[in-house]
């Protein structure tokens, strides 16, 4: 008989013992009196991407933006942080007990559903707000060491921290060539004399912004789990209030504060919408 066999037998028996003890604990813990859980519910967010009213299709040049650019989208990666539930009585609950910055990636399904850890007090809520990107205080380099969040890092010279969003695609440019665009939002830079040269940076611009989800009032009962959809309407990054033209701004904008400013103002306006989650379609 081998020693490893003995070892695994011991482990096996012990596991059973532990499980049995655990069960004992659990069952003896159930008391009839009010526990906090019984006054709270749970929330799940589902992040979706739509374009022209239908689920976003990837890598197909089927879209035309407000500027008339024909374009395709390859992938979208972004951060939503500091989600706040605003109560009807004026108070607000910040969702930050386990995760205060949530990453969404159109290539990674498990990022598209966020089962919020925080118990949510039962009652009526007026609206939900969140920060698109990451606020200045929290946006610190090397806070995400592991992928996929790690790969959102924003270079030190350009302000550090992390991209708020990478929206990558291609457009048919006015000269007839299909060109890539990297609609990347993050910390902007101010360049002395307007010359884009990292040596002439005189300051940084925090471009993150607060989104107030439209029509996001809801009520939640004790013990209930509410599932919501947070929908990104991709075409709106390029149309309200500013018409964003890829032929004007080109393929890259991390060092073009004017372009990022338009993008962020559009993002705040009407990119996100909200509703009860009705399941995948």
């Amino acid at each position: 008989m081998s020693n490893s066999f003995i070892a695994s037998r011991y482990f096996g028996n012990l596991t059973i013992l532990f499980v049995a003890t655990g069960l004992l604990f659990f069952s003896s813990c159930k008391k009839p009196e009010d526990t906090p859980e019984e006054k709270t519910g749970k929330i799940v967010f589902h992040f979706t991407q739509y374009n022209e009213g239908a689920p976003q299709r990837y890598d197909t040049m089927k879209y035309v933006n407000a500027a008339g650019n024909h374009y395709l989208v390859s992938e979208i990666q972004y951060f939503v942080s500091d989600v706040k539930l605003h109560r009807a009585d004026g108070g607000a609950q910040l969702l930050d007990q386990w995760e205060d910055i949530h990453y969404v990636d159109t290539d990674l399904e498990d990022t598209q559903e966020w089962k919020v850890y925080d118990p949510v007090e039962a009652g009526d809520y007026d609206k939900i707000t969140f920060t698109f990107g990451i606020c200045e205080e929290k946006n610190q380099s090397l806070m995400f060491l592991n992928p996929p969040e790690r790969d959102m890092f924003w270079p030190e010279y350009l302000g550090g921290g992390y991209h708020y969003m990478k929206l990558n695609g291609k457009w048919l440019s006015s000269d007839g060539m299909v060109k890539p665009f990297n609609f990347h939002l993050g910390i902007g830079q101010i360049y002395a004399g307007g010359v884009i040269d990292p040596d002439s940076i005189t300051g940084f611009v925090q471009n993150y912004f607060e989104v107030e989800l439209p029509a996001s009032s809801f009520g939640i009962n004790a013990g209930e789990t509410k599932e919501f959809e947070v929908r990104m309407n991709v075409e709106n990054w390029f149309q309200h209030p500013h018409v964003y033209d890829h032929d004007v701004w080109g393929g890259d904008i991390m060092q073009k504060q004017d372009a990022m400013k338009l993008g962020c103002e559009n993002g705040k306006e009407d990119v996100f919408s909200f509703g009860e989650w009705k399941g995948d379609n």
Binding site: S141, P155, N182, D252, Q255
Partner: peptide
């Protein structure tokens, strides 16, 4: 390093890492 990590420079970092990803590969 500036060239490596800026879009207007050589823009290598999106695929090959940098300060935020010292493995130098995604």
């Amino acid at each position: 390093f500036v060239l490596f990590t800026t879009e207007e420079g050589a823009d290598c970092f999106h695929c090959h890492g940098g300060y935020g990803n010292p493995l130098f590969t995604t």
